[in-house]
Amino acid sequence: MFFDTHTHVNVEAFELDLEETLQRANENGVTHFAVVGFDTPTIQKSLELSALHDNIYSIIGWHPTEAGVYTKAIEEKLQQQLIDKKVVALGEIGLDYHWMTSPKDVQEKVFRRQIAISREHCLPISIHTREAMEDTYRILKSEMFYGGIMHSFSGTVEDMYRFLDLGMHISLSGVVTFKKAVDLHDVAKKVPLDRLLIETDAPYLAPVPFRGKRNEPSYVRFVAEKIAELRECSIQEIAEATMKNAKELFKLR
């Protein structure tokens, strides 16, 4: 049984076949989902889905590419939404220096503000970092928070150990199945089993053999299979460990 700890089935790519997508996931052993909302419409859709499905949970927050439009009104609304009992983390938040839709100082301000909000609500955080590993580490090291996830981790083993020291979990996506992702292969071998999570980031980052196509939660199995291959263990061991880790981090029974 698998827990897809980061999926975006709340976006337009799944508008026409969402129920079929969820059914395929269940048929492939995906029993739990964390649906991530990152702006006003996707946050609302995430909350709607988690209200409708017992096995869907919400992670909601303001994405760094949207930092430039973060306002007091948005924050007040987010504060209200975080009270929802199906919300298990605040995210995805962080820094994105690839798209640079907002200046670095604006991204950092919104990032730090949301970390503070996560403390108020005693929620873990889900971190997006793209071409901003050092600044992400610097900020997290200087803040207090209730644990969290390095979503779709893309760093080296050395980066991994630094974030583990801050209390973070390492979440691996379909990228770990890519032939040239040698740093991630090393991470998959060395990350402590009790700090490992798996995800799809669907509809993005589809694993081999679906690379380049729309990703979906049922494909999280291929992430688990690759990690098991690299660690020379059973897929059941990966499934059980990552399920346990997710439930403990999200405070689920």
Rank of each mutant, 00 (worst) to 15 (best):
F2R: 02
F2K: 01
F3A: 02
F3S: 01
H6R: 11
H6M: 06
N10W: 14
N10G: 13
V11S: 14
E12C: 15
T21A: 15
Q23E: 00
Q23C: 03
Q23R: 09
F33V: 04
A34Q: 00
E48W: 10
S50N: 02
S50F: 06
A51M: 03
D54E: 05
N55L: 05
I56E: 00
S58Q: 10
A67K: 09
G68L: 08
Y70D: 04
K72T: 00
E75G: 00
E76G: 07
L82K: 07
I83H: 02
V87S: 03
V88E: 00
L90C: 01
H98Q: 04
W99T: 05
P103K: 08
D105L: 15
R119T: 04
E120H: 12
R130W: 09
A132M: 11
E143F: 10
Y161I: 08
R162E: 15
L164N: 12
L172Y: 02
S173Q: 07
V175I: 15
F178A: 05
H185M: 01
D186S: 14
V191Q: 09
L193G: 07
R195P: 04
T200K: 10
Y204L: 06
P207E: 09
F210W: 15
K213M: 10
K213I: 04
K213Y: 12
E216H: 10
P217F: 04
S218L: 06
Y219G: 08
R231G: 12
E232I: 01
I235H: 03
E240Y: 05
L249I: 04
R253E: 07
